[in-house]
Amino acid sequence: MQLKPGSRLRSTTCDTQVVVVRGTGDLPVTCGGAPMVAADAAPTDAGTPAAGHDGGTLLGKRYEDADGALEVLVVKPGAGSLGLGEALLAVKAAKQLPASD
């Protein structure tokens, strides 16, 4: 699916929804082992998260791939795990910036 920062996606295996923070182009983003779809796409059901892709997502956490090609923000949590192709995305460390306004 063609993505750009701001694209909003939803899982077909759980309640997870994400918004793309970094990443542009045709990126195979998955959740629960199945491809994610545009948030406003017609409902589809790919069943439940596959084994190994069922670690769950956390609200407000950012996830990224090892190469830094993709970063997404979880805006709705769910039971599936996020992935890019075969690889799972990892939670990005919390920001250490002090509040400035």
Binding site: P5, A94, K95
Partner: peptide
């Protein structure tokens, strides 16, 4: 929206 949302998401940790 993308300017302000990027600023917030990039500099503030959710529900911290």
């Amino acid at each position: 929206h993308r300017h302000l949302a990027s600023y917030i998401i990039g500099s503030v940790e959710f529900w911290a």
